[in-house]
Nucleic acid binder design. Structure first.
Lengths: 120, 120
DNA sequence: CAAACATATGAGCATCTGTTCATATGTTTA
DNA sequence: TAAACATATGAACAGATGCTCATATGTTTG
């Protein structure tokens, strides 16, 4: 680690054009953060199960809890995260709150993930 | 919370068909886990930045560290995670190890994420 | 309006995750 | 082969995350 000064390659000039190009084309910090936050929401098997459930039907929190064998509280906490990411929406029907997928993005993203997993 | 016995809706029968259908169509635990693990890899802005860097060029660890302003160690740890998820691959060129995107899945998945973010 | 029902939420706790630091492994060069 | 270079990795620590428990909020019904 000498060319790599301070463990950060500060002295290197070898591929400076590459480094510059990468820096130039890097999206804004905001977009990177938002993207990571979005995928983070998909990165939990409980939330994944909730999303698969919503593929089948619009459903209230209580049914969802029963279908997944989880407490109402745990499901509700996860639904809040999904709602904040605008992946699911809700409507009130009497005492119940019915959750549903906001749009087809969820299905598309998960399908792409499946394609990656299922190959090889 | 009475119909919802033990905080789990055990007594409810109201939407039992829905619950059954959801349970029936739920993917295997393995697939849910693998999917969540895959998206978890996308769910960190450092790894997101690494992936965007690799959109531009195949690159060695040292250049990557410089481009991102991170230590070589931190980058290397993240590259291991990306490699284990088969999102990136590597080849050795002399002293250096060059990293590159395994295939187009990464780009597709990130593009779908961007579509979701950029709407509304 | 009170009681029952359905959902949401804050606090606390155990676990997971990303970074740093030190060092090991692997490759080239003098 | 010794020294320099490039990358990988284990341990440790701080911050994030998901669940539980208790309780608050919101809706309907008697």
């Amino acid at each position: 680690m000498a060319e790599c000064d301070v463990d950060l390659c500060e002295v290197r000039e070898v591929h400076q054009e590459k480094v510059s190009e990468i820096t130039a084309k890097m999206p804004e910090e905001d977009e990177l953060y938002d993207l990571a936050e979005l995928f983070k929401v998909f990165g939990d098997s409980t939330r994944m199960r909730i999303l698969f459930a919503l593929f089948e039907a619009d459903i209230c929190v209580c049914d969802l809890a029963q279908a997944l064998g989880m407490t109402q509280s745990a499901v509700s906490h996860q639904l809040r995260i999904l709602r904040q990411a605008r992946l699911v929406s809700s409507r009130r029907e009497g005492k119940q709150v019915i959750y549903f997928l906001t749009d087809e993005h969820v299905r598309t993203i998960i399908d792409k993930g499946r394609e990656h997993i299922e190959e090889d």
